[in-house]
């Protein structure tokens, strides 16, 4: 479903150019649970941003399904981002003063989707927060907040769930709980998850691990022939 071919992302910072991604090829299929690992600066977050259409590659090709999305204009990317991807961040990124239900409704508002209340409530039930629907972030624990964020990303029935260090701000037990929830969503509902982390322990939940260093993939436990050729060529 996700096909990246020789994707590069160069940031120009004054005179010097920073090669955050230096030619990455990667294929991810529906229902996969992929962990992208690497140290900070390895390019794993940049890769996630490009997959989630928050960022654009400076070179290379990105196809989502049959569609080339590497050169989409900003508005089309925004719409596709809202419908196709769900994001979970280390710092939850919930809006202050909004109830859990309103947080989860947000993506549906921008889609102009009908039946928002019910769908948002259902998503909260899926993550086990049926009794926290009316709570605002300050009334929720870290784990609960992260599950609200998870519900917000699930409510649009995304093609891919992108999680950037989702357990980074949680204690071990709560983090473990969240990972089990994610695993269950993959196993039982066929969700596709791309998990970015630097913790090996967290990555063990994934079925496939992609290791990155200096903007390149150095190891991919689930790469197929075509992708491997692209990823290891340089």
């Amino acid at each position: 479903m996700i096909h990246l071919r020789d994707v590069a992302r160069v940031y120009s910072a004054g005179e010097t150019a920073v090669h955050a991604l230096a030619g990455v090829s990667l294929d991810i299929d529906r229902g996969e649970f992929v962990a992208i690992m690497g140290q900070s600066g390895s390019g794993k977050s940049t890769l996630m941003n490009i997959i989630g259409l928050l960022d654009r590659p400076t070179a290379g090709e990105y196809r989502l399904g049959e569609r080339d999305v590497s050169r989409l204009p900003e508005d089309a990317r925004a719409r596709l981002r809202g419908r196709g991807f769900g994001f979970v961040f280390q710092s939850y990124n919930l809006l202050p003063r909004m109830t859990a239900l309103e947080q989860v409704e947000l993506p549906l508002i921008y889609q102009g989707a009908p039946d928002r209340r019910r769908r948002a409530a259902e998503a909260l039930v899926r993550v086990g927060l049926a009794d926290r629907i009316r709570h605002v972030p300050t009334e929720l624990s870290g784990g609960e907040q992260q599950r609200v964020a998870l519900a917000r990303s699930l409510v649009v029935n995304p093609l891919v769930l992108l999680a950037d260090e989702p357990t980074g701000a949680l204690d071990t037990a709560t983090g473990e709980e969240l990972m089990r929830l994610l695993t269950a969503l993959v196993d039982e509902q066929g969700l596709t998850v791309v998990l970015v982390t630097h913790e090996a322990e967290v990555a063990t939940h994934a079925r496939r691990t992609v290791r990155m260093r200096d903007g390149r993939i150095i190891e991919d436990t689930g790469a197929r022939a075509g992708a491997r050729a692209g990823g290891t060529a340089s």
Partner: peptide
């Protein structure tokens, strides 16, 4: 700024 980032992430266009 952060709120704007969140809204963009969940699908808000520049026009929104």
């Amino acid at each position: 700024t952060r709120e704007i980032g969140i809204r963009r992430a969940v699908g808000a266009t520049a026009a929104d």
